[in-house]
Each structure stands twice: as C-alpha cells, then as structure tokens.
Amino acid sequence: METKSMELGKMDTSHRNEPTYLAWSIFSTFCCCLPLGIAAIICSCRVDNANTLGDAGKAQESSRIAKNLNIASLVLGLIVLILVIVMLVI
C-alpha cells in the first residue's frame, strides 16, 4: 500500500505559478509597440491557461517569451521616442 504525501484536507502547493506579465503587455501594446504588445498579450494568456492546467513547462516557456517581447517592445518604443525627439530638435 502506498503512503500518501498529502494529508487529508491539505492542498498540494508544490507547483508555483509563472508570472503572466499581462499588465506590462497591455502597457506595451498601448504605449510602446503595438505588434509586439499584441504578441506579448497572447503569450500572457497562454501562461495563464498553462498555470490553470498545471502545465509548468509550457507556462515557464510562455512567460519567458512574454517577458522578452515586453522588453523588446519597451526598447523599440524608447528608440522611436528618442528618434522623434531628435528629429523635432533638428
């Protein structure tokens, strides 16, 4: 007979949910770069779904992609902003 690692009435909290970066993705969509922000929102939703289903590998991968897309969107938005300011000054 197998021994159970959980006692009756206690939930298994050994898995951790990956961050979705959804708020950052929405900000990136409206303020930085629309195409990269939309892709980041899609990946953020995939993270949420994978967290709900308990698929840690897919959640981790989608979270990493969402984070990288948000960073790229922010950098691209800042570059465009700097270029616009430089063009206005010149």
Rank of each mutant, 00 (worst) to 15 (best):
Y21T: 01
A56P: 01
H15I: 03
G77Q: 11
L69C: 07
S73V: 00
M6Q: 06
L74Q: 10
G9M: 08
P35C: 12
E61L: 10
V89S: 05
I85A: 15
M11G: 03
I42D: 12
E61C: 08
T29S: 10
M1C: 03
D55I: 07
P19Q: 04
T13P: 00
H15L: 09
A40E: 07
M87D: 01
L78W: 14
I82A: 15
A59P: 04
V89W: 07
S63M: 04
L69Y: 10
I26Q: 15
H15S: 11
I42E: 12
A50D: 06
E18S: 10
G54T: 01
L76K: 10
T29W: 13
E7V: 01
I79C: 15
P35E: 08
M1G: 04
A39K: 15
C33P: 03
I71T: 12
V75L: 15
R16F: 03
E61W: 04
F27A: 13
T52G: 07
L22W: 00
K67T: 11
I79D: 08
T29K: 14
N70F: 06
T3V: 01
K58F: 02
V84E: 11
V80A: 15
L36V: 01
L8S: 10
R64K: 14
E18T: 01
E7T: 03
T13S: 04
M11L: 08
I41M: 15
G9T: 02
H15W: 05
E61N: 13
T29G: 02
Q60P: 00
A50N: 04
A56G: 03
K4F: 04
I42S: 14
D12W: 05
A56V: 12
L36D: 08
S5D: 13
G57M: 02
V47A: 06
N17H: 03
L8E: 06
V47K: 04
S14R: 09
V84K: 11
Q60V: 00
E2D: 01
C33N: 11
A56H: 05
D48M: 08
C32W: 02
L36T: 00
L34Y: 12
V89G: 01
A56Q: 11
W24L: 14
E61P: 00
